[in-house]
């Protein structure tokens, strides 16, 4: 369920580190809890994000959930497809429906995050 090459937060975001870039998304558990996602609010390219601080939000018909950045740095790309097809977040949250790419300012940040197995245990305990 949860890919081994991602690191996870307690607020249900993930990051995949590729070189000096972190690709950020929300987890399968998060999309399932929200239900049908209808809107994603994301920062603009160039924005600074900080680990643990909100970088945007996702909405279902009757709920809004902040997205907390798993890493710090500058946003270098935003997944624009989600603005017209937010349902992709329900279909493929760990892949096609990534949210933003961040040039990491503190790559060491990720040691604070959970591994796939830790996250699996965490969501198991949470539910």
């Amino acid at each position: 369920m949860y890919p081994e090459d991602l690191r996870y937060t307690k607020e249900h975001e993930w990051v995949r580190v590729e070189g000096d870039t972190g690709i950020v998304g929300i987890t399968h558990h998060a999309q399932e809890a929200l239900g049908d996602i209808v809107y994603v609010d994301l920062p603009k390219v160039g924005a600074q994000v900080e680990q643990g601080k909100p970088l945007g939000s996702v909405e279902s018909v009757k709920a809004v959930s902040d997205i907390y950045s798993p890493v710090s740095g500058e946003v270098t790309a935003v997944n624009d497809e989600l603005s017209t097809a937010p349902e992709k977040l329900n279909a493929d949250p760990h892949g096609e429906a990534w949210l933003v790419k961040v040039r990491l300012s503190a790559p060491g940040d990720i040691v604070n995050l959970m591994s796939a197995s830790e996250y699996q245990t965490y969501v198991g305990a949470e539910s």
């Binding site: 809107y39 909405e59 018909v61 009757k62 709920a63 809004v64």
Partner: peptide, 12 residues
């Protein structure tokens, strides 16, 4: 688009 409204977003 009810997520703009008070019963969902409360103080925001």
């Amino acid at each position: 688009l009810s997520t703009r409204e008070q019963h969902i977003r409360r103080e925001k």
